[in-house]
Nucleic acid binder design. Structure first.
Lengths: 110, 110
DNA sequence: ATCTTAGATCGTAAATATACGATAAGTAAA
DNA sequence: TTTACTTATCGTATATTTACGATCTAAGAT
């Protein structure tokens, strides 16, 4: 029980799931928006906008970073984050490819 | 602590997060593939293909259904599931729109 | 009417996610 | 050096997810 079986799926399926998981919380979607709209992607600005504690935002940022969707540099006492477009687009493409493929095969059974 | 604050984000952010969450497990991605590739989208065929117990697959199907990505009809003693393309494409479009928008605004700060 | 089959649901255990406050660690300014 | 500021990390509580076996339900077969 509760022994996770994620590893028994294909790498592509796991990658897509990991990407989706990174986006599966509204706070992380909001963070991505802020990162793109501000020229200076300072952590503090994100904290100011979101209805969450600083430590919680930091945790969400870490998850986005671990998933490879953003990258961060420490800049003096601050941290500068930005979107990792390369990895991001790779996933978007994979998603679209998968769904395009699914759509062409589908034959509406119900 | 642990009082979820998802409701404090915008509806669009919540919708995208819900969609992403539905796709955030490789089993559910695999299920969507099977649903598209088989003409007869019978639950049993999914169970046969996945490395999971019947009850677990049923649970994943329920989550996909709750998220609106698939719909299901009981057909005698069996259950027929299929992909809800309308809702599916709505989300895909929203995703692409969001990311396209983000991309155009970004100015590479780090 | 009973048996079989397919699937959903219940109960449960363990893992993971969410959130916060407190604290640590590092830089900049006084 | 001390102080203030910014962010990361730790500890912790609670909620949710994942997974299974067992059981319930409903339809079809005998």
């Amino acid at each position: 029980m509760a022994i996770h079986k994620k590893d028994e799926f294909s790498q592509k399926e796991q990658d897509l799931a990991t990407f989706a998981k990174a986006l599966s919380h509204p706070a992380r979607i909001a963070i991505l928006k802020v990162l793109a709209q501000k020229n200076e992607c300072i952590c503090g600005e994100i904290v100011a906008v979101l209805p969450l504690a600083q430590s919680t935002v930091s945790q969400h940022l870490k998850e986005l970073k671990t998933a490879g969707l953003i990258s961060g540099e420490t800049d003096g006492p601050r941290s500068c984050y930005c979107i990792n477009w390369k990895a991001f687009e790779k996933f978007i493409t994979d998603f679209n490819t998968l769904f395009e493929k699914l759509k062409s095969v589908n034959t509406k059974c119900c």
